[in-house]
Design a protein around this nucleic acid. Structure first.
Length: 296
DNA sequence: TCCCAGGGGCATC
DNA sequence: GATGCCCATGGG
């Protein structure tokens, strides 16, 4: 029997699948037809899970390995796809904006697809800084395929992200060999060391009272600036009012939708987001989604 | 050739 | 705090 994860009315599994796929060769999951597969660990052992949709629920099957902790897997899937969130209030805010209201129609039921693993999120951010996305995914794949453990299924391999302890022990040259710059190699190993020494963890961040303090904690780390800290909070900690200002995608989307200039626009961009208290993160996400839609 | 990508650190003033 | 420069690969 598959596990069942009930979905709220405004939830589209198709939109989640679209985001997970979108032709970007992400090595951390695989979309195939109407399902997505991802390798997890359950009580220390690898489990390949497969998510599909049935009526008003997501079904979770183990296609390889065993789900030994059902609650943990359901919790993981729920956080990954931000399932348990009523986005109706966000749509009510969108309706008040003439140019943005159509986002709620075009991408109806789109929820944020997160990256529950904090270490993975930070490394991914550093890899992606200032390079095009295709290349960034290539570098991530090289890292994961070289240092992540994996299981095979149906002629394919599925990977776990390399643990911080392993990355912390790598010589910088080995990271350089993945086509990372020396700077990025240093940043990534530095972050790995913080995790390995338990100076940084999801638990530590979550213990802080608010988003601002989490942001400040992340900003102390070398290699993590405003963009990365905000992105990490939105994708990994599920913070709801984060905006990675200066993001090229946000600038392009707001230029296309509202004619806001692409540069030196901080004030105008802040003004747009200030109309979405509690939902700024979702607006960012919908703007990114709009970049890959011809109708916008 | 030049500019820009889901930036950030650092020196300098 | 603002500005300029560096990192370094790949695509348009």
């Amino acid at each position: 029997m598959p596990l069942r994860l009930p979905t709220p009315p405004l939830f589209s599994f198709e939109e989640a699948l679209w985001f997970l796929d979108r032709n970007l060769d992400d090595c951390m999951h695989e979309v195939s037809g109407n399902v997505v597969r991802k390798l997890l660990t359950c009580e220390g052992k690898p489990v390949l899970i497969e998510l599909s949709s049935s009526g008003n629920a997501i079904l979770i099957n183990a296609v390889k390995g065993k789900i030994t902790d059902e609650d943990a897997v359901i919790k993981y899937a729920g956080e990954w796809l931000d399932v348990d969130r009523d986005i109706a209030p966000f749509y009510r805010l969108l309706k008040k904006d003439r140019e943005l209201t159509r986002l709620s129609v075009l991408f109806r039921g789109l929820h944020i697809v997160g990256i529950p693993d904090l270490f993975e999120t930070l490394v991914w951010c550093i890899i992606g800084q200032q390079i095009n996305l295709e290349f960034a995914y290539k570098v991530k794949r090289a890292l994961v395929e070289k240092y992540g453990s994996s299981v095979g299924f149906g002629g394919k391999r599925y990977y776990l992200f390399p643990p911080p302890q392993l990355v912390a022990a790598l010589p910088l040259e080995d990271l350089r060999a993945l086509q990372l710059t020396m700077r990025k190699a240093e940043y990534i190993r530095g972050v790995a060391e913080l995790f390995a020494q338990d100076l940084l963890s999801r638990k530590r961040l979550e213990a802080l009272p608010n988003e601002e303090q989490m942001l400040n904690e992340l900003l102390k780390i070398r290699g993590i600036g405003e963009w990365t800290a905000n992105y990490t909070l939105m994708k990994s900690l599920r913070a709801m009012d984060r905006v990675p200002y200066g993001d090229a995608g946000i600038n392009i989307a707001l230029n296309r939708l509202k004619g806001i200039p692409k540069k030196n626009n901080r004030k105008e961009v802040e003004e747009v987001f200030n109309s979405f208290p509690g939902w700024k993160t979702y607006l960012v996400y919908y703007l990114w989604r709009s970049l890959r839609d011809k109708k916008v």
